[in-house]
């Protein structure tokens, strides 16, 4: 199992990294390969290559309350406009490209954390409280998934 936290150093955009860091401290995640990627764009596909089970965590400005958690399926992701994902050639496009090329892992779980784009300005800025609170809930959910089928 791989867990990939996607983000940038800007404020709440770090939430994917924070989940990865928190998960890395969990004994239940000891066997997982945990990666933090900074706006990887299409290079995400290189990180997915040859993997069977992958969890991806990213921030998304969805308009909902910051800290809202989403478990998104790939078809749903295509419905999210490119602009809602946080980085240029974004997550949705990279996964859509991967699907078109037939290179996605057979099991791919995608979690998004709702953020307010106005809270992604300061480099190294602390997470806003609502987003920080989502980190623990999401880490627990990923741990349950690891326990459910930790191959």
């Amino acid at each position: 199992m791989s867990v990939i936290g996607i983000g940038s150093p800007r404020g709440d955009d770090r939430v994917g990294w924070c989940v990865a860091d928190t998960l890395a401290r969990q004994p239940r995640a000891a066997d997982a390969r945990i990666l933090k990627l900074d706006r990887p764009g299409a290079a995400l596909l290189d990180a997915l290559a040859g993997r069977r089970r992958v969890v991806i965590v990213d921030a998304a400005a969805t308009g909902a309350a910051p800290g809202t958690l989403y478990r998104v399926s790939l078809p749903d992701l295509a419905e999210i406009p490119a602009a809602a994902s946080s980085h240029g050639f974004g997550l949705a496009q990279a996964l859509e490209l991967g699907r078109g090329l037939g290179v996605l892992p057979p099991e791919l779980y995608l979690y998004l954390v709702g953020i307010d784009p106005r809270r992604t300005v300061g480099i190294g800025q602390a997470l806003s409280p609502a987003v920080a609170a989502a980190v623990g809930r999401l880490t627990a959910a990923i741990c349950r998934r690891l326990a459910a089928g930790g191959r």
């Binding site: 299409a42 050639f89 496009q93 859509e96 490209l97 699907r99 078109g100 090329l101 037939g102 290179v103």
Partner: peptide, 15 residues
Amino acid sequence: DSAPAMAARYGAELR
């Protein structure tokens, strides 16, 4: 419209 839309026809080139 986009690179993903090219994938079916130009998969080898994209890879």
